[in-house]
C-alpha cells in the first residue's frame, strides 16, 4: 500500500485514542487509519500509555463495589464470536462505485443523497456532526473549488483519487487540515477524479470577485440541517 504523506497531528491522534475527540473528527481519524499503519501504531502506543496511566491510579474505593461485582456475576455471559468484519460497503455516484471507509461501512443507508453543486462537484451529507458538517465530497476530473477561506477548521481526507492545491498533491489516505486564515483552492487534474471525506466546523468564505457571489449560497457547501 502506498504511504500517506499527510497525517493527523499527534494532538488529534491523542484526542482520538483517548476518546476525547468530537465524533466527526474521530470518524475522520478512523478513516485515515484504514490507510495508515504508522498512525495505527501511534494510536496503539497512546492506548497502551493510557492503559498504563490507568493502572497507576490509586485504587479508589466505591462504596458498592461488592454489590456491583455480585450483580455482574449474575448476568449471563454473551456468546461472542470475534466481531465479524463489516463487509466492505460501497457508495455509488453516477454509476461509479467507491469503497467506504470501515467506520462508515455499517451506516451506508444514513448517508444522504448526492447533491450536485457548482463546479463539477457532488456532495453527500453524513448526519453525524454535532458542531459543523461532515460530507462526502466528490470532485470530477478538471473540477475546482472556488478559492475560499474558512471561519473554523476544514479537514479533508482523500478516500479515492487525488486533488492538488498550490502547496501540493494529496492522494488516498492524506489528511489536509486548514485553519481559519489559510486560503486554498483545491482542484483535480484532467485524468483523475477525487472522493474526499470533509469536515467543516464553521462556514466557508469565498474570496475572489466572482466567487464571492457564492457567499450568500455558501449553504450549498455548508448548512446546518
Amino acid at each position: 500500500m502506498k504511504k500517506c504523506n499527510h497525517h493527523p497531528s499527534q494532538d488529534l491522534l491523542r484526542l482520538h485514542a483517548s476518546g476525547d475527540a468530537d465524533l466527526a473528527l474521530s470518524i475522520i481519524v478512523s478513516a485515515h487509519l484504514d490507510f495508515c499503519p504508522q498512525c495505527r501504531d501511534k494510536i496503539a502506543d497512546i492506548e497502551q500509555q493510557n492503559a498504563e496511566q490507568m493502572l497507576l491510579q490509586p485504587e479508589t474505593e466505591m462504596p458498592n463495589f461488592e454489590s456491583m461485582m455480585s450483580g455482574i456475576l449474575q448476568q449471563q455471559q454473551i456468546a461472542t464470536s470475534p466481531e465479524t468484519k463489516p463487509s466492505s460497503a460501497q457508495i455509488v455516484l453516477e454509476g461509479r462505485c467507491f469503497d467506504l471507509p470501515r467506520v462508515l461501512s455499517r451506516h451506508q443507508q444514513r448517508i444522504e443523497a448526492w447533491r450536485r453543486i457548482p463546479g463539477k462537484l457532488h456532495r453527500a451529507k453524513i448526519p453525524a456532526a454535532v458542531n459543523g458538517q461532515l460530507d462526502l465530497l466528490h470532485m470530477d476530473t478538471q473540477a475546482q473549488l472556488p478559492e475560499h477561506t474558512h471561519k473554523g477548521q476544514e479537514y479533508t481526507l482523500v478516500l479515492h483519487g487525488e486533488f492538488s492545491d498550490d502547496n501540493g498533491v494529496y492522494s488516498a489516505g492524506d489528511l489536509l487540515v486548514k485553519g481559519p486564515n489559510d486560503s486554498h483552492q483545491p482542484r483535480t487534474n484532467t485524468t483523475q477524479d477525487c472522493l474526499c471525506l470533509t469536515y467543516l466546523d464553521a462556514p466557508l468564505h469565498f474570496k475572489s470577485g466572482l466567487a464571492s457571489l457564492l457567499n450568500p449560497f455558501s449553504q450549498y457547501f455548508f448548512d446546518k440541517n
Binding site: N50, M54, L55, Q75, Q77, T80
Partner: peptide
C-alpha cells in the same frame, strides 16, 4: 466491568495486554 465479564471471550492475548483491552472497553 459488565462488558469485561460478558465479552471477555473477545480478548485476544496475542494482540495486547489485558489492561489495554480493559482500557479500550472503558474508553
Amino acid at each position: 466491568m459488565l462488558k469485561v465479564w460478558q465479552k471477555a471471550a473477545l480478548y485476544d492475548a496475542s494482540k495486547g495486554t489485558a489492561i489495554t483491552w480493559i482500557y479500550s472497553v472503558a474508553r
